[in-house]
Nucleic acid binder design. Structure first.
Length: 284
DNA sequence: AGGTGGACCCGAACGC
DNA sequence: TGCGTTCGGGTCCACC
C-alpha cells in the first residue's frame, strides 16, 4: 500500500538530486539476488563501484541515475521499494534492506524493499532510450501530453479506461491510486471503454490526470504504509484523496456512498452517483 | 494484435 | 489464541 507512482518517484528524485550530484559510489553492497536479475548482484555491485553521478532523472516510475561514464542505473521501486539517505553511518538497521551505496562524502544511500519486486538495472549508454521507449508513453506532466495526445492513445481501444490509464505505454507514471483519483475528477466510470470517451470526456480526463498528479506532487506523494522520502518523511496526499480508500463514505461532490469494485483486475474506488459510463452501452 | 489473467512476493487482514 | 487463507499492487509473460 502507498505504492510509489509518478508523484512519489518524482519527490524521491528531487530530494536525492542535491545529495547525489557529483558524488562517487565508493562501496556498493547488494544483498538480494532478485534485485539485479538476471545479473548476479556481486557483478552489478562491482561495476557500480567508482561510478560518479552526472544526473538524477525520472521517467514514468523509473529513477534514472546517469553516471559520468554515461552508463545508467535504472531503478524501479515497484510496490514497496524505498530509498533512504543518511550521514556518517547512521543508516538504521533494517531487515528489509536489500542494498547500500556508500558515497564518497561518507554518507549512505540505503535501499529497502519488503516485497522484493523492485529492480536495479545497469544499462550501457545506448540501451536506455530503447529500453524506456519500449515501455513508456508520454510524460503526463510534460508539454507534449495534450488532450489530443491522450485521445490518440485511447482511440479504438476496447479496454476499460481504468486499464488504459494503468498502461504505462499510454502514459507513463499512473498507478492504481492516481488513476482512481483522475477518473473521479473527470466524472468518468472506470469501466467505460476507452474508445467510447467523447472529446469533451477526454478533455476533462486530461485536466483530471494532470490535476491529480500535480496535487500529489505538491503534497510530496501519499504515504499509506511504505512510501517515504529519502529523509524518512511521509507525504500528505493521502489526506486529500477524493475517492481512493473512501468506500462507504459520501462522495464530496454528490453525497452518494463511494463503492469499491474490480476494474481492469484492480481494486477500484469510484462514485456510482456521478461517475457515469460514457456512451459505451449505446455503441457496444 | 489487442485484451486478459496468472505469476512473482510477503505482510496484513480476515475467517474459522 | 492460533492457525490457515486471501488479498493487493506494477510489470511481465503466456495465452486467447
Amino acid at each position: 500500500m502507498g505504492v510509489p507512482e509518478l508523484p512519489e518517484v518524482e519527490t524521491i528524485r528531487a530530494r536525492l538530486e542535491p545529495l547525489l550530484l557529483g558524488r562517487r559510489f565508493d562501496r556498493v553492497t547488494i544483498s538480494d539476488e532478485r534485485l539485479t536479475m538476471p545479473f548476479p548482484p556481486e557483478s552489478v555491485a562491482a561495476e557500480l563501484q567508482g561510478q560518479r553521478i552526472a544526473s538524477v532523472e525520472r521517467r514514468g516510475k523509473y529513477l534514472i541515475f546517469r553516471f559520468e561514464s554515461r552508463r545508467v542505473l535504472l531503478i524501479h521501486l515497484r510496490m514497496t521499494g524505498t530509498l533512504q539517505h543518511a550521514y556518517d553511518g547512521t543508516l538504521a538497521d533494517d531487515p528489509y534492506r536489500r542494498a547500500v551505496v556508500r558515497l564518497d562524502d561518507g554518507s549512505d544511500v540505503g535501499y529497502r524493499d519488503v516485497r522484493r519486486f523492485g529492480t536495479w538495472r545497469l544499462l550501457e549508454p545506448d540501451e536506455l532510450d530503447p529500453y524506456l521507449a519500449k515501455r513508456l508513453g508520454e510524460e503526463p506532466l510534460g508539454r507534449r501530453f495534450t488532450a489530443a495526445a491522450l485521445a490518440a492513445r485511447l482511440v479504438n481501444r476496447r479496454t476499460p479506461i481504468k486499464a488504459a490509464l494503468l498502461d504505462q505505454r499510454a502514459l507513463a507514471g499512473m498507478g492504481n491510486i492516481y488513476a482512481d483519483e483522475a477518473l473521479w475528477r473527470a466524472r468518468i466510470h472506470p469501466r467505460s471503454q476507452a474508445r467510447s470517451l467523447q472529446p469533451e470526456d477526454v478533455r476533462r480526463l486530461h485536466r483530471a490526470i494532470r490535476g491529480a498528479l500535480q496535487t500529489g506532487l505538491a503534497l510530496q506523494g501519499s504515504t499509506l504504509r511504505d512510501y517515504r522520502t529519502p529523509d524518512g518523511e511521509p507525504g500528505s496526499m493521502q489526506h486529500e484523496f477524493r475517492v481512493y480508500g473512501r468506500e462507504g463514505q459520501p462522495c464530496y461532490r454528490c453525497g452518494t456512498a463511494i463503492e469499491k469494485i474490480r476494474a481492469a483486475g484492480r481494486g477500484t474506488s469510484y462514485c456510482p452517483g456521478c461517475q457515469v459510463e460514457a456512451a459505451a452501452q449505446a455503441s457496444g
